[in-house]
Design a protein around this nucleic acid. Sequence first.
RNA 1: GCCCGGAUGUUGGAAUCGGUAUACAAGAUGCGCUCAAAACGCAUUGUCCGUAAGGGCGUGCGGGUUCGAAUCCCGCUCCGGGCACCA
Length: 827
Amino acid sequence: MARAYDVQAVEQKWQARWRDEGTYEVDNDDPRPPFYALCMYPYPSGPAHQGHVRNYTFGDLVVRYQTMRGKAVLSPLGFDSFGLPAENAAIRTGTHPRTFTDARIGELKESLVRLGAVYDWRREVRSHDPSYIHWTQLIFLRLLDAGLAYRRNAPVNWCPGCQTVLANEQVFADGTCERSGDPVETRDLEQWFFKITDYADELLTALDDLEWPERVKLMQRNWIGRSEGAELDLEVVGHPGLTLTVFTTRPDTTFGMTYAVMAPEHPLVEVVTTPACRAAVDELRARVASESEIERTSSGEGGPALEKRGAFTGSSVVNPFNGEQVPLYIADYVLMSYGTGAIMAVPAEDQRDWTFARLHGLPIVRTVQPPEGWDEQGGEAYTGDGAKVNSGFLDGLTVVEAKHAAIDFLEREGRGRRKVNYRLRDWLVSRQRFWGCPIPVVHCPTHGAVPVPEDQLPVLAPDDVEFLPTGQSPLALHEGFRRTTCPVCSEPAERETDTMDTFVDSSWYFLRFCDPFDADAPFGPSAAVHWMPVDQYIGGIEHAILHLMYARFVTRALVDVGVAPPDLPREPFHRLFTQGMIRMDGSKMSKSKGNLIAPARYYETVGADALRLFHLFVGPPTDDFDWTDQTDEVIDGCGRFLDRLWRLAGASSAQDGRSGAYNDADTGVRRATHRTIERVTSDIERWSYNTAVAHCMEQVNLLQRYAREDPHREVLADAVDALLLLLAPMAPHVAAELWERRHGDRLHSRPWPVHDPALVATETVTMVVQVNGKVRDRLEVPVTIGDDEAKDVALASERVSAALSGTAPARVVVRAPRLVNVVTSGA
RNA sequence: GCCCGGAUGUUGGAAUCGGUAUACAAGAUGCGCUCAAAACGCAUUGUCCGUAAGGGCGUGCGGGUUCGAAUCCCGCUCCGGGCACCA
């Protein structure tokens, strides 16, 4: 595609200037009002793909726009540089993960710089830098000291192929590993956890005040999963003094409990199972042990038939409300990790219990009267409101009333208590991997898990390790690393060989950015308070839950354990923007799917400005975008727009136009200019970048026509200047170049243009005249027109008379000055 | 199964508060410029009827509210995303 200017030369020139002049470096004592703009720091997988390009185009727009608005903008970038791919590459090729990772960082950084995205590179952080590891480890130790980090035996998803523990989100719905495709198993391991559940309630309630997409807040609320209910202590028949505690959100339905169910791993299973039932119980427990939690809780195809998923223990428990004995089962769908690991089953008011009861021939007793005709229409479990029935002292109450009355009864009788339960679980941070931040703990035969003294940090992994495809972490195999002495007694001891989940690194990097120059602390307290919270955080919707939840937790925990000052805002991200995904052939564009379109081919042809403009223009930033065969044509179109801009702005600076008084055309252009300033500004503020670009295109079209006729020299020059200012955050290279040619100075140092309200205000407006809701005429009227006059003007219209054809108006709806609707009938 | 989104010309999309449906762009067609092509410029481009003026229809489907619905309500269909036997 032949271009109007040397795109590559212009882009390289300005990128060099921004870099060499440190244009977007900002000091912590900058007197301008602070603004912290941040894109989620990327995992360095190689050169940028279109998802990155979109993300960093939006981020760069915010940085440049807020700078022109007079803010001291903190714009840092770093790399989430620990992670499994580097370790796998090491096993495959023998390259050390650091070598591999540094090369990928170089590629990614280069392609972002080539996009024209600007950062304060002095603040760059990398998770794997010893200086960063140092402070991640200090944070771990402080959490440990405060009781927020702890160790326990826990069932984990174990991938036999990767020889590693997987998070739930790394396991596909069919129970296979997302990387290797192997079936995932369950294993017990001694693991480190962070106690995020201590913050469940705060993490939930604080969501209300965040300027985040409602969708993301809703996802977090559901993830935390607060539910109010009661715990009931059920006596086990034949075991005096033994009770089984269950959690329920529907204590009002207890009269309808016809059986109870425990998780197969529940410790009481051993005690309550009778010899006659032992075989069936053991069979189920053996099967469950080899299944991942995902498989167990999946209702999808391929699982065992429902009747095979439960087994009778032979024991019974007593319903505390009516003294009846009901059978006690185990079933795989009851999880030890939620609630108490046991439930009371009320088939009439829970569909899953209904189905289970039917398959096992268990009785069903309704305790809420379903609506008229429910049974006749084939209704099964009824979960709605209604009058309580078959429920003794609760009869006649509503569900809500009965819940309170039931809990009051339980507490009075000492058989249970009010209880709030959360779905959120503690955060498993242990990883049996090499390429992560080592957990700074020493295991002593005498003193147990002993923290490494802070003056001995960082604990760094040795370089002379072997990467073998055994899956065993090289750390665990490295005698020199493992063997050490106990910090307490100096006797021989072993180092912890687990490393931390990379989500730990990404849970505080935004704080390090505030002050990465501090060699003695993770961040300076005053710098952190100065910049935090992040004013605008930008990233993909895929991080809506985990990363954002962990970062919110860690920020709070750091304040509470004293690593961060008490006046640091507890919410790290004030405003969040989640961009849509780039899809190709129906799925997310990503390296693992092999459907990447690298930006490099566009840098070499249409250039970074056109590619940026395309990403801004193609649709609402929140929406997903499907990359198709037609996409290149749209990108070329953005290049052609910049060519028109170049010809317009290049020619008009030299052109001798008219001077003196303005004619109607001049005034029209001045009004259009100020309307464009107003629209583009409000579009940027409301994240409507596609319409902001459209308004700039309209203005170029208008100015092209104006310039061709008989333009006023100053009107045209002012209009072009305004356009360049508006495009400065969107297409920064070409706008900066044109501005320099016209004025000799730096476009991006200029203040953002302000529209003149007098020029934006219109004097006349098109009034629509409808007859029975159908448009029959359009009239130019003064904006100040009153209702009466608008009605008169409308009724005087010939077209309206024709449409009425003699019928008398029954009613006239007037919304001056925009619309009059003449209604003829009562219809 | 539950929850959250979405569906507008040939295509991406616009319509910010219930008030002109389709801005802007892509594609297509025609014209100009050119020896020619590209580039550039101009024009047309929802659909049906009509020579035209003009009119009918039209925002996934079916209803409803309203003077007026792409927008609000009810019931569907399809697509995307999230969560999942969560008690």
